[in-house]
Computed example of a mutant assay.
Amino acid sequence: MLPDEYCQQKAAASGSSFYVSFRFLPADRRKAITALYAFCREVDDIVDDQTMDAAQARFKLDGWRKEIAEMEAGRPDHLITQALFPHLEAFNLDVNLLLAIIDGMEMDLDKVRYESFDDLKKYCWHVASAVGILAARIFGLTNPQTGEYAEKLGLAFQLTNIIRDVGEDIKIGRIYLPADELKEFGVTEDDLEKARYTPEFSELMDFQAKRALSLYDEAFALLPEEDRQSQRPGLMMASIYRELLLQIKKKDFPVLTEHVSLTKTKKLWLAWKAYVDE
């Protein structure tokens, strides 16, 4: 199998909202973002593999750190790094950001609770904002402020994921909702584990959603006009993710027992609307 084919299959199999926007890119940028996304899926799958113990997962993540070093030296071995290597210089892709993503994935092996939102933001930077910065470079940027937009948008995306996946995460022992906010709203870990839909839970989740929606608005405000057209793929992703968050909010956060998602048709419509609006 060719490197680009492997990455294409990896990205397509995920069914992610992100993949929908890739098809609107020119071929070289599409190949680069698909390789980046395949890398993120590969390292994330290591940590999420419940058949693997922490020591095995760390060993595999260390293997990826070595593979990134080999790629930087011009000797990529894995199909993903072979696909990504040609784009490093073309799109100014900093390997330190790739390593930061691996560090973020490893945080899931070290930490399953976050005391505060500031604490959580450090995790989100590694697993989402670093990805956003790399993606923005692939899409094309001329103004450094676009990096700030991408960083904040990545945080909004990750908070949306956290809200959507509360019930799924608690099943594997992870709680990303800040502990001090759980306490402030009167929601216990037992409430989450037993899937209790209390008024306090609704208030807590509404607070989380409002913060995420505010971050989308802050990100959009940061995007310089001269880079809006090139950053259309990110705006398309944002349109899909923001709508998903609004749907979760409209349903009063059934996230303890339900995986809320948008249909493929809805995602394509939102992506196309965002594309033509820009």
Rank of each mutant, 00 (worst) to 15 (best):
K194Q: 15
Y6Q: 07
W64Y: 15
I80H: 03
C7M: 01
Q50N: 15
A69P: 07
P144R: 12
W272N: 06
S21P: 05
F22G: 04
M205Q: 11
E181T: 03
D165S: 09
L215K: 06
M71S: 01
E258M: 00
A128Y: 10
E181A: 00
A32I: 01
W125M: 14
T188D: 03
Y241V: 06
A219F: 01
L155S: 09
R211K: 12
F201G: 00
P254F: 09
F157N: 04
T188N: 06
T142L: 14
R58C: 13
A156M: 02
S16H: 08
A195M: 09
Y37N: 07
G173Y: 03
E203W: 13
L244I: 12
L99N: 10
A13F: 13
I248C: 03
D110I: 03
S21N: 05
L99A: 13
Y197L: 14
P144Q: 05
L192P: 08
A55D: 08
K264Q: 07
A12C: 11
E184V: 00
A73C: 11
K266A: 11
K66I: 14
K264W: 06
E67Q: 08
F85W: 12
A100Y: 11
H87L: 10
K264I: 05
L61E: 03
A130V: 12
Y241C: 00
D28M: 13
N143V: 02
